[in-house]
Every structure is written in structure tokens, then in C-alpha cells.
């Protein structure tokens, strides 16, 4: 049996497993809970449990590994992203940044467990997250500069007068496009990564199947190579899961800094 024909046959099933299938639906209304939303709630529950349990048992000197871990994560957000990027007056933004970081990190890591779906692999969820960030930094920009002052502060100061409208227009486009790039970056990375993992696993299993069905033993070696690729890709995905949470949070921090700083 030709393994590539088998792959061709089964790749449709792989793609179908990424569809937002309904877990349950109210009649035929098309309203219900998709698998991504279900996993989003599970990620939310895990985040809440971790943070609340650690928050209840805070002591001056952390005395268990678990609390130390959560404190380290919070400290990371506060030092690296809050103090390092936003600078003066960062304290009131830390809650949002820490929420975004922990939620996205746990959502990404959940998807790496076989059988689970990553909530951030659905465009609607990343879209909602990026809208939260977008509304937040615009709100703080308007609150700091006032409505007209914020609109003027989009263009950097100190430009020659005829250039101001042109630069303002480009800066405005890049400001509006932030909501799109934040959402699509997270979605694209998670979706493409999981699709690549799926394809590699499918290749390995199809070549192995054809060996079992009596093809040449050479295909067994090819299957092993795909398996090594799969493990390497999985290691890379572990890095990407952390990195994308970091990038999303630090870009939110940078946008808040750009909106609230007086230049």
C-alpha cells in the first residue's frame, strides 16, 4: 500500500479536527459551545485555581515550590514588562498584563497535551483578547491626554508642519492595524504549529502502517525520521507557546507605553 496515498486520504480528517465543532448546541440554532470555547473555559478555570490558591497562601518568605513558581511568574511580568517597558506609573497596568500573560500561557500549554485543543488556535478567541488590549490602551491614552490631545499625539511632535497630516495618517493606520496583528500573530503561530505537528504525526503513522501491511522495511526508517522531526517540532512548540504569550503581553505593554507617554 502506498503510504502517500494513505496520507492524502487521511489529511482531510486532520483538517476536520481543527474545525470549531460543536460540543453541544441548542437545537439547530447554530448557537452553542464549540470545542475551542470549552477548552478556553478549562484554561480559565486552571488559571483561576493556580492564582487563587497561590494568592491565599502568600507569606513573606515563600515556603513551597508552587507558590515560588507563581510569584516568579508574577515578578517576571511586573519587572520585565511593567517596570522595564512602561516605566513610570506602571503599577496600575500590571493586573491586566499579568492576566493576559497567565491566561495565554496556560491556553498555549494546554494545547500541547495530546487530545486537548489550544483555545488560542481559534481566531475568534485571539480576536477577543486583542480587542481587550486595544480598547485598554486607547482608554488610557484618552484618559492621559484627553480626546483631542490623544488624537494629536498619534503623530510624533517636532515634525515640519506640512508633513504632519501624512505622518499622522500612516501612524493612525499602524495604530488601527495593531488589533489585527496582535490577533493574527497569536492565532497563526498556534494554528500553524499544531497543524505541522499533526502532519508530522500523520506521516510517521502512515509510513508505519504501510510497513505493517507488508511494504518494504525501508519505509520503517522513513517513519522513524518523521518521528524524530515530530519530537524536535514538539520541543520547538513548547518554546513557541511561551514566546507567543510573552510577545502578546510585551506588545500590549509597549502600546500602553506609547499611548500614555508624553512626547
Amino acid at each position: 500500500m502506498d503510504p502517500l496515498a494513505l496520507v492524502n486520504e487521511l489529511v482531510g480528517h486532520l483538517q476536520a479536527s481543527f474545525d470549531p465543532a460543536f460540543v453541544f448546541e441548542f437545537g439547530d440554532s447554530g448557537i452553542g459551545m464549540t470545542q475551542y470555547v470549552l477548552w478556553m473555559f478549562i484554561a480559565l478555570a486552571i488559571t483561576l485555581i493556580i492564582v487563587l490558591v497561590a494568592g491565599r497562601r502568600l507569606t513573606v518568605v515563600p515556603n513551597s515550590k508552587f507558590i515560588n513558581m507563581v510569584e516568579y511568574g508574577y515578578q517576571f511580568v511586573r519587572k520585565d514588562m511593567g517596570e522595564g517597558v512602561i516605566g513610570h506609573g506602571y503599577k496600575k497596568h500590571v493586573p491586566l498584563l499579568a492576566t493576559l500573560f497567565f491566561f495565554i500561557l496556560i491556553s498555549n500549554v494546554i494545547g500541547l497535551i495530546p487530545g486537548c485543543k489550544t483555545p488560542t488556535g481559534a481566531l475568534s478567541i485571539t480576536w477577543a483578547l486583542s480587542v481587550v488590549s486595544f480598547v485598554y490602551f486607547n482608554y488610557w491614552g484618552i484618559k492621559t491626554h484627553g480626546g483631542w490631545g490623544y488624537i494629536k499625539s498619534i503623530a510624533p511632535s517636532g515634525l515640519p508642519a506640512p508633513m504632519v497630516p501624512i505622518i499622522w495618517f500612516f501612524e493612525f493606520v499602524s495604530l488601527v492595524i495593531r488589533v489585527l496583528t496582535l490577533a493574527v500573530r497569536l492565532y497563526g503561530n498556534m494554528f500553524a504549529g499544531h497543524m505541522a505537528l499533526g502532519i508530522f504525526a500523520l506521516m510517521a503513522s502512515c509510513f508505519l502502517t504501510s510497513v505493517i501491511n507488508g511494504a518494504t522495511v525501508l519505509f520503517g526508517g522513513i517513519s522513524l525520521v518523521w518521528l524524530i522531526f515530530l519530537v524536535a517540532m514538539y520541543a520547538l512548540e513548547c518554546l513557541v507557546a511561551f514566546l507567543q504569550a510573552y510577545v502578546f503581553t510585551i506588545l500590549s505593554a509597549v502600546y500602553i507605553q506609547l499611548a500614555t507617554s508624553s512626547h
Binding site: 522595564g84 492595524i177 496583528t181 493574527v184 500573530r185 497563526g188 510585551i250 506588545l251
Partner: peptide, 20 residues
């Protein structure tokens, strides 16, 4: 590294536009 992430995000925006 922070600045690198920001610059990479700005450059990546073009690729993401192409993707969309």
C-alpha cells in the same frame, strides 16, 4: 531583547497582512 521583540513585531505585521 525587548527592543528586538518590538522591531520583529513591526516587521512581522507585513507578513501577517499577507497571511490575512
Amino acid at each position: 531583547f525587548t527592543n528586538f521583540i518590538i522591531a520583529a513585531a513591526l516587521a512581522e505585521a507585513l507578513a501577517l497582512l499577507g497571511f490575512v
